[in-house]
Amino acid sequence: MDEPRKSEWVRFGLHLKRLRTQQGLSLNRLADRAEWSATYLGKLENAKRAPNADVVRDLDRELRTNGALLRAWNDVVRAQAALDWYEQSRGYEKRAHEIRFFHPLVVPGFFQTPEYARVIVTHTVPTASEKRIQNVIRTRESWRKDLDTDGGLVLNVILTELALTRPIASEVMREQLDRLIQEAERPTVTLQVLPSGISDLAWLSGAFRLVYIEGEQPLLCAEHAIGEYLTDDEQETRKMETVFSKLQAWALPPDVTARKLGEMRQAL
């Protein structure tokens, strides 16, 4: 049975077909050399089947790509894993009654304005195409809609002063601060700013969020350099709950945070 076509597999299939045709090989000839059926390889090229490590190693050998095809396959696996994680994470968040979020470097994605998101993406991924940038913006806007605070979901968010004082165009930051001020006025949103220069190093823990679902073990979503890590391990979750509590203790109270955001907005 064929599997649903996914964009990552489509790109891999096109890459595989291009390598094959560049070497003047028919599908049947490559299948004979790699000892896989032509039907199966055809499905890989047409993104009707997911590539696996065994067939990719054989194709890499027969096409003499010196590991390039295998690296392309690894890109497929990472991209699909990220997509699967994203869908799984969003599913949990839609069922949550509380989410605690901390990011030391930027405004959380679900609170970002389109122009702020554009700046962050273009600085972190300078080669990003306009299509990719627009996709990120749409994803973050959709993320906020999924977090139904009007339906009772409680958001506890801690931002760092560093995230709010980055050298970003004044008009972009004014709009972003307006958005944060608006969000902070919601009764189910608690927003706090962590001042610069605090002695506690808990903020170096990196970005993470804790997701609470009624009757289930809390989930920890921790960001790292190439993606995110999702776990319900009790020991790890409790450790990050302690970190979040320390950050809350050092952060400005919500009312002081609201005044600070207003002052920063006026200063721009």
Rank of each mutant, 00 (worst) to 15 (best):
G67N: 11
N66V: 00
E93T: 12
S89K: 01
A117R: 06
L14S: 06
Q80I: 05
F102G: 02
E45C: 02
W85C: 03
K6S: 05
R64D: 15
R90Q: 15
W36H: 12
D54H: 03
P108S: 08
R118E: 10
D32H: 09
N74P: 00
E45K: 00
W85T: 09
E35Q: 15
T113W: 06
T39W: 11
R100W: 10
L41R: 03
K94R: 14
A72R: 14
A38W: 07
S7E: 06
L16G: 03
L25I: 05
F102M: 05
D32C: 02
S37F: 11
I99N: 02
E98P: 00
V10P: 01
S89V: 11
E35Y: 08
W85H: 15
T113L: 09
D32M: 12
R90W: 05
Q112H: 09
A117C: 14
Y92D: 01
G42Q: 10
Q88I: 03
Y92M: 07
H97A: 05
Y92N: 00
Q22K: 13
A82I: 11
K6P: 00
K17D: 14
E87L: 13
A82S: 14
L19M: 15
L105S: 12
V10C: 05
P108Q: 11
Y116L: 12
L16R: 01
E35A: 14
R95V: 01
L41E: 04
N46H: 14
V77H: 07
S37V: 08
H103D: 15
F101Y: 12
E8G: 00
L44R: 01
I120H: 01
R118M: 04
L63A: 05
F102P: 01
R49Q: 13
L25F: 10
V107T: 09
Y40N: 13
Q22T: 06
W73S: 01
R29E: 15
K6M: 09
E98V: 05
R33Q: 15
R29T: 12
E98L: 15
E62I: 04
V55S: 09
K48D: 14
R49W: 05
T21P: 02
R11W: 06
Q22M: 14
P104N: 13
L41F: 08
R49T: 07
V10S: 08
R18S: 14
R20N: 09
E115C: 04
L59D: 03
Q22I: 02
I120W: 03
L41V: 08
P104D: 09
A96Y: 01
Q23N: 08
D75S: 13
L44F: 06
Q112I: 04
K48M: 12
E8H: 13
V56Q: 01
D75T: 09
G13L: 10
R11Q: 14
V56R: 00
G109C: 04
G13Y: 06
R64M: 14
F12H: 08
R61N: 10
L83M: 11
V56M: 01
R57N: 11
V76Q: 03
L19W: 07
Q88Y: 09
D84T: 11
Y40I: 06
N46Y: 09
E8A: 15
A47I: 01
T39Y: 08
R64H: 14
L63C: 09
F111S: 00
E62R: 03
L83Q: 13
W36P: 00
E93K: 10
V107Q: 03
E8V: 04
D84W: 02
F101K: 00
Q23A: 09
